[in-house]
Design a protein around this nucleic acid. Sequence first.
DNA 1: TCTGGGGTCCTAGGACCC
DNA 2: TCTGGGGTCCTAGGACCC
Length: 412
Amino acid sequence: MTDHRTILHIDMNAFFASVEQSANPELRGKPVAVVGGHGRTVITTSSYEARAKGVKTGMAIWEGKRACPELIIVVGDNRKYTYTSTKINDIFHTYTPTVEAFSIDESWLDVTHSLSIFGSAENIAYLIKARIRHLFGITCSIGVAPNKLLAKLASDMQKPDGLTVIRPENVSRILEQMPIKELCGIGKKMQRHLNMMSIYTCGELGRCDAARLTRKFGIIGTRLKEMGRGIDNVPVVSFGKEDDVKSVGHSSTLERDIDNPAEIRRFILQLSEMVGNRARRYNVSGKTIHLYVRYADFFSSWGKQTTLKNYINLSDEIYLAALGILATVELEQPVRLLGISLSNLKHQAEQLPLFEDERKKRFATQAMDRINDRFGRMSVTFGSLLPGKEKAGSHVIPPSWRPDGVKNIDVQ
DNA sequence: TCTGGGGTCCTAGGACCC
DNA sequence: TCTGGGGTCCTAGGACCC
């Protein structure tokens, strides 16, 4: 299907750092790095001034300082980013109802049916950029194209504060010399494989024999060739029409490596509480629990999962399942990171448990969740957590957070 | 004082059932 | 007693995205 859609991809420039610079004039024009508040943190986002000096996302603080000694370290503040992201999302919705949040700082808009009202996609892009700059003092890069793949590619072509339009008649010219790694979906490994087949540009990928790609990559081969030609029919899926959420998980690098079993169990309980709290807020329960451990040497790790007969979402049930997994292994090193996730999810129909003690437990859990929602994570928790004052990892939300928050889930 | 945290999707192989 | 094959569920692990 050759469609005639018009898609915008909007990418907030250095989002967390820009929000900080906007909130604090002393940071403007200076190299700033946003980091997590606790534990062995890394740089989540850095300002363009810092990037110019070689500061990159994922660097440890000391690495960032080595690249740029005058680097200003700012501990991230979730509330600022979620608030700003939500408000920006509101702006998008004044131009089209079809808005898909790819992450906290990236969205696609299908404006095909808005063009008659607002004139042109470029006009919409200008209006959006002006409003975001006016309201929040930050910039974004916008790509306009006939599909999501090309719109995302376009928004990457001019940063910061760019506006790039890829018209259907220019697609093949633009892709001819474009390195394949610029395409969303082609990572390091795929790039290496394609390079070994002497494929370096999108043009070459698009002309490659489909059978050759399919032999090498299986079913993905066909898709790769399409990507090389700039073909992408994936629709923009707005909030409320997405697929069900598939898993809920938390992981945390510990402040220091630990090998004390009681301490490990304490962190597992804490993570179980975080996972359970979120699952209950999403109103889902799951029957597969996954425990992930990374050892002190950073490189060795393992993950084990177990599937239960029943769907669960209470913190202590998750905790017990995770402990069950832990009991099947012998730890080889001190532990650096622990993670728990709940998958195999289903929407939980609201019904009161039959037995009095179960009802009491449900109410107690709901009360605890409400307090935590209001006053922040882990304001109240199970007693066994109280003696330790150590808390798991970073409080800075990941860029994968979506302003829509809870996804829509069909009741089954 | 090296190297975060949240996800999705895909594949391969084994167990088990019909 | 011997045989093939399809389907589903499960675990483990990897690639990719932000």
